[in-house]
Simulated assay, not measured.
Amino acid sequence: MSSQVQHFAEAANQFCSWAEHAPQSPEAEAGTALRLLSSLYQQALTLPDTFAEGEPAETTDEEWKSIYRRFGALPFNYYSQRFDPMDVQNDALELGDLADDLADTWRDLRRGLSLFKSGHVAAAGWEWRQSFWQHWGHHAAGGIYALHCWLAEHSQGAA
């Protein structure tokens, strides 16, 4: 078993467990979200580029909506961002949604966890790596920056 996949599974399980439990204070939630997202992001960069097939369990819309509502406990929801930060000619800002960022990350992590827990370790690693580069990594990066800015302003960075 790849140690990178094992370590990522532990971080993914920690994030999903936090997401599936009752929230703490808004300030504590912001600090926890930043720590967990940052850890996931860093560890995703080390996932092996090894293809393996597996059929992950799907999350229902109602499950996702429940997690989205749970993230309403954060101290803010919307933030501004650039859709494509590489397009420096375009000044247009987009609206980011932190609850959506976290709920989408949770959904993608759960897919890989379903594979991991059923013994399809390589397939879980592939699922997490692909979904990181294609989907949840964008959400995590936006959320990390927004959370950092909020905590720097409201908590002197004491997350």
Results as ranks from 00 to 15, higher is better:
Phe76Glu: 00
Val5Arg: 01
Ser3His: 12
Cys16Ile: 02
Ala28Ser: 15
Asn13Ile: 02
Gly157Leu: 12
Glu53Pro: 02
Leu151Val: 09
His148Tyr: 14
Gln81His: 13
His154Arg: 13
Leu47Met: 05
Glu20His: 02
Arg107Ala: 11
Gln81Met: 14
Gly143Cys: 07
Asp49Pro: 02
Asp87Leu: 09
Thr32Asn: 12
Gln4Gly: 00
Trp133Gly: 06
Met1Val: 14
Phe76Gln: 00
Ala159Arg: 11
Gln14His: 11
Ala73His: 07
Met86His: 11
Asp49Arg: 12
Gly119Trp: 07
Asp97Met: 05
Ser114Lys: 03
Ala33Asn: 05
His21Leu: 11
Glu63Tyr: 06
Phe51Cys: 03
Trp126Phe: 15
Phe8Gln: 03
Ala158Gly: 10
Ala99Gly: 08
Gln6Glu: 15
Trp64Glu: 12
Pro48Met: 08
Asp97Gly: 05
Leu45Trp: 08
Ala159Thr: 11
Thr105Tyr: 00
Gly142Cys: 07
His21Ser: 14
Ser80Leu: 14
Thr60Gln: 08
Leu95Ser: 14
Asn13Arg: 13
Phe116Ser: 01
Gln156Asp: 15
Asp108His: 10
Leu151Met: 13
Ala52Leu: 06
His138Ser: 09
Ala99Arg: 12
Gly119Pro: 04
Ser17Gly: 11
Thr46Glu: 13
Ala122Gln: 13
Gln14Asp: 14
Ala122Leu: 10
Trp106Tyr: 12
Asn90Phe: 05
Gln42Cys: 07
His135Val: 04
Ser114Gly: 06
Tyr41Cys: 05
Ala158Phe: 14
Leu95His: 09
Asp49Trp: 07
Asn77Phe: 01
Ala99Glu: 09
Trp128Asp: 00
Asp104Val: 04
Leu109Ser: 01
Leu115Asp: 02
Asn13Lys: 11
Asp87Glu: 11
Asp104Cys: 09
His148Val: 10
Trp106Val: 00
Asp97Trp: 03
Trp133Cys: 03
Ser17Tyr: 10
Ala28Asn: 12
Gly137Leu: 02
Leu93Asp: 10
Tyr68Lys: 10
Leu74Cys: 08
Ser131Lys: 06
His138Gly: 11
Gln134Thr: 11
Gln81Pro: 01
Glu29His: 07
Trp150Glu: 06
Cys16Arg: 03
Gly72Leu: 06
Lys117Cys: 07
Cys16Val: 09
His138Pro: 00
Arg69His: 13
